[in-house]
Design a protein around this nucleic acid. Structure first.
Lengths: 151, 151
DNA sequence: TGTTTTATTGATAAGAATTATTATATTATA
DNA sequence: TATAATATAATAATTCTTATCAATAAAACA
């Protein structure tokens, strides 16, 4: 944890931003809840538990900043709010998501499954790929099992 | 054009919705600007040119309805507005996008490049894929050419 | 056909998410 | 330490979208 905070601190410094206490508190929440996909409001409420004096606008600003520096990815699952997701350490690409249309759960896939596809895009469309985002919508294993049982 | 309107009319009727003049006007705009990725506001302004009496709420309602019936896909490129994109005729899946980070242009890829990837997801994660959305971020051909010239 | 029900619409209010503003506080720098 | 630059909290303002509601149009039915 401390190691990753340090890394992020350096990334900020490299662009002459400071890791203020508020920013650190925000990053800590993101690290602690790495598996989740928190909205700005979610992050705000969690940060507030430990740093009650923080303001919502600061959280928004911090998330925006982290997003610009590619420390977090801003994603949107179509529910009206942006969600913020830490990049895996050293990950060059965004990771993928499996969104269950039954229960709404979101699983992550870290594997880069798109190397072949990217090659095709670069070759056939002349498009130089820098990043990608891939989301599958469908039914997760749990919901499939439930469906079988209740038959 | 008329053929596609007819098809959409049938899809609406199948769910006992009517193709009202307002809905038809909205669909016509979507068909005319099929290559674009219009926001609700964009659609509203374009529909208004030919049917000045239409209300913004009706356009939102129509787009929502078309979205539910999978006639259009509601997409989000992270600029704060939802955009609406007609599905290609008979397309089972969402098509993909190439978003240029230099000029902001959005190209479409109709090919289903993900068959292999979907097989892996179904097999390794037990996730039954119903749909997917894939967006590549990078530099389009035009911007690459410009970059070379201005060197 | 006339009447009743239902669906749809337009105008606008309400809501939610996000951004802008402003005064204050903190930090860095001369 | 004084001064300038950054960052912050509180909150106002904005933007996008949805809900409400009265009016209208269409459909169903007697």
């Amino acid at each position: 944890m401390e190691h990753r905070i340090d890394r992020i601190k350096k990334q900020l410094h490299a662009q002459s931003y400071k890791l203020t206490p508020q920013r650190e508190a925000t990053v800590r929440v993101l690290l602690e809840r790495e598996e989740d996909h928190l909205s700005a409001e979610d992050v705000y409420l969690l940060v507030k538990e430990k740093s009650p004096e923080i303001g919502l606008a600061t959280v928004y600003r911090t998330l925006e900043l982290l997003s610009e520096l590619k420390i977090v990815d801003k994603i949107n699952f179509g529910d009206g709010v942006s969600r913020y997701d830490l990049r895996k350490e050293g990950a060059e690409h965004f990771h993928h998501h499996l969104v269950c249309i039954e229960c709404g759960s979101v699983e992550e896939i870290i594997d880069d499954l798109l190397e072949d596809v990217e090659r095709i895009v670069e070759k056939d469309w002349g498009f130089r790929v820098k990043d990608h985002r891939l989301t599958f919508h469908g039914v997760c294993k749990q919901c499939q099992d439930v469906a079988v049982k209740t038959k």
